[in-house]
Nucleic acid binder design. Structure first.
Lengths: 202, 202
DNA sequence: GGATTGCAGATTGTCAACAATGGACACTTG
DNA sequence: CAAGTGTCCATTGTTGACAATCTGCAATCC
């Protein structure tokens, strides 16, 4: 992980690593994951690996079949993708509307740090890092809401959007879109912020 | 379980039982669940119980804190509940719209069976059974879509709505609402069916 | 020849023992 | 007496052994 986030438990560390590999297409849809392989690779027993599988299944990145193990999930079909976009927009705009008046300078400063990471990833053309920081940006917004359950609601939807997907011709657009969101927030322009957010989610 | 559904794995059976107890408020928000207690109760080791905990966590019924175990989740806050309603409506109307032209006689016949269960539950004033069959009804609709991933997307949202909640003054209303959905489907009236579905989800 | 059965290896499912963690409460210390 | 420290116990986290299940392939039968 390029971020120095602290994962408290063994399964979380394993899940974080595997998530990164799925989102970066190092692991492709349909690829099987073997418990023993991974337990040897991470130097743990099969228990924590199974637990990590469970977390990633919940996030929609892996699919589990009893007695047959887990595989990397397929991308949402072309038919379902617009639904996922709509769901994610619904949640994120709900949260932004809800917290808008209570956004603190600390919040903005934290989001700016992430924006800087996004900018760096764009400039060095590092798609994997961009995916990671893009996710962190939106995650940070969701997490600033009081109701922590919103994150659990949002995560599986957002993950399904981030899987093996790249809609941008110019990678720098990602930076511009996120900057536009943050600029509008800083200016206190709620309508513009919501519009910028919706534009970014597609 | 009053239905004779077949659960293939041990964890699924345990999860089904616990889910029923959470949805029927036998287990209340904040109640802790102990691995050893449940493993003794179900006559298995702690492994399958942990696995069941993971499934229910993913569905939003339980909340997991590392090194501290799981508790029954809180109801969605009054602020978040409208969002959950909107998300569930979005998914279910999307599915109904999408499958409408391809609904078979077998589908309708199966849904009628569930409607009969709903009617029976209403008439005998059995709220727990009603919750179960209400869930089965909507689940059946979601599952008739080709994209099986939709169910995974829908479930955590629907579960959050079903937790310890009863919006109806007259329990028979539930039967009437579901009957109205099915009548509209039988009549081939898509608009009416979608409207009836939205009315039922609140 | 094509379908069915039976085996063998690989893989997941379950278990019970042991390790690590966290919280309560008594104890020391200033 | 208040703040901090240590110990114990309940509980979860991790492990490795063993059981059950699935998959592919070869032998058998019609």
């Amino acid at each position: 992980m390029s971020t120095s986030e602290i994962y408290r438990t063994l399964p979380e560390q394993i899940a974080a690593q595997l998530r990164q590999e799925v989102l970066s297409s190092k692991l492709k849809p349909g690829d099987p994951l073997r418990e023993v392989d991974l337990s040897e690779r991470f130097g743990v027993s099969r228990g924590p690996v199974r637990e990590a599988f469970r977390q990633l299944t919940q996030q929609g990145l892996l699919v589990l079949e009893p007695n047959k193990g887990v595989r990397v999930a397929q991308n949402p079909s072309v038919e379902v993708r617009p639904l996922v976009v709509r769901l994610r927009r619904t949640i994120e705009t709900f949260v932004l509307k809800s917290i808008f008046e209570r956004i603190t300078a600390d919040d903005v400063s934290y989001w700016e740090d992430i924006l800087a990471d996004i900018k760096a990833a764009c400039e060095s053309n590092d798609v994997d890092a961009l995916t990671e920081h893009d996710l962190r940006f939106h995650q940070a917004i969701i997490r600033s809401h009081d109701d922590k359950d919103l994150f659990a609601l949002w995560q599986p939807i957002a993950m399904r959007m981030m899987m093996h997907y790249n809609r941008l011709d110019d990678i720098m657009d990602s930076y511009r879109e996120h900057k536009r969101i943050l600029d509008a927030i800083r200016a206190g322009d709620k309508t513009a912020a919501l519009d910028a957010l919706e534009t970014n989610i597609q």
